[in-house]
């Protein structure tokens, strides 16, 4: 099944400005504490780490735990140093790996 992800950056930004990046990915964030319909614990299945890279340089990272809601939403800041490509990657259990990119235009 195709994973859906949303990555929102402002349409344009000035150099030196601080912008907010918002990212969401489709994922159940199964905690490992819930009981399924068969009475057995559902296996833990989490997104464990999210990273933001701007033109290859890491500008943000976060480690997630079961207390993060399903379809994890994150908002984080970035100081604009010029135009470039922002890539957000999500990695987690059961080989989960996804990325999304957005162009930041700073004339």
């Amino acid at each position: 099944m195709a994973v859906r992800a949303l990555l929102h950056v402002p349409a344009s930004a000035r150099i030196g400005e601080v912008i907010e990046i918002r990212a969401t990915v489709q994922h159940p964030m199964e905690t490992g504490f819930r009981v399924g319909s068969d009475g057995q614990l559902l296996a833990r299945n989490l997104v464990r780490r999210v990273e933001g890279h701007f033109d290859g340089e890491r500008v943000f990272a976060v480690d997630l735990h079961p207390a993060i809601a399903a379809n994890p939403y994150l908002a984080f800041p970035l100081r604009v140093t010029g135009s470039g490509l922002l890539t957000v990657t999500w990695q987690g259990d059961e080989g989960f790996s996804h990325s999304a990119s957005a162009r930041i235009n700073a004339p």
Partner: peptide, 24 residues
């Protein structure tokens, strides 16, 4: 059930120290 929720890694490139998420 577990005390940890999230750990955010920031730096000078962040510009401001402000993060947001949705938790349980």
């Amino acid at each position: 059930p577990l005390p940890e929720v999230a750990v955010f890694h920031l730096g000078p490139r962040s510009g401001v120290a402000r993060v947001a998420t949705r938790m349980r």
